[in-house]
């Protein structure tokens, strides 16, 4: 990985809570990797974005990674995950589920079968930043290798 790589790493953040979204964006901004973050404020918007529905998303970029919050109004994270994994075009995009507590993994296990990874939003900001960064590194490398 090097700075002369011109194409940024595209992340779609699906998160209804602006404060949480702010934390994620800050963590990504502070990272070493050049990332472009698109923010969908709920599940329905995320699906529209991914399928480039409507004028607003006509030019939407296909993300390299989806960071998906679970609990959202309208279409929630479980439904978004199902939509993505059932869509042949979108299926290959890795999805990382953000959860409030580790207990959710087990309770929601049956809903989250298609998720590639889970991240529990940690209490500590530094921890959170570290987690997001490790995700970036991991997926950036995987995706670049796949390309």
């Amino acid at each position: 990985m090097s700075d002369d790589q011109p194409e940024p790493f595209h992340i779609l953040l699906v998160e209804d809570d602006p404060a949480d979204a702010g934390l994620v964006k800050r963590a990504i901004r502070d990272g070493k990797i050049l990332c472009a973050v698109d923010h969908a404020k709920d599940g329905a918007e995320a699906i529209d974005f991914l399928r480039r529905r409507g004028e607003r998303f006509a030019d939407a970029r296909r993300p390299d990674l989806i960071l998906l919050d679970l609990n959202m109004p309208r279409l929630d994270g479980r439904q978004v995950l199902q939509e993505v994994k059932n869509d042949p075009d979108l299926r290959s995009i890795p999805v990382v589920v953000l959860t409030t507590s580790d207990i959710e993994h087990d309770v929601e296990a049956s809903y989250l079968l298609g998720a590639n990874s889970f991240v529990t939003k940690p209490m500590d900001v530094q921890d959170f930043f570290d987690v997001i960064r490790s995700l970036e590194n991991y997926w950036f490398n995987v995706v670049k290798l796949a390309k």
């Binding site: 809570d17 404060a19 949480d20 800050r26 609990n71 409030t100 207990i103 959710e104 500590d124 900001v125």
Partner: peptide, 20 residues
């Protein structure tokens, strides 16, 4: 219990950011 953790975590996170 689940939903209350969200705002609490955000409060703690932003307090930490503030401190930083």
């Amino acid at each position: 219990a689940h939903d209350l953790q969200e705002p609490v975590r955000i409060m703690a996170s932003y307090a930490q950011l503030l401190k930083r």
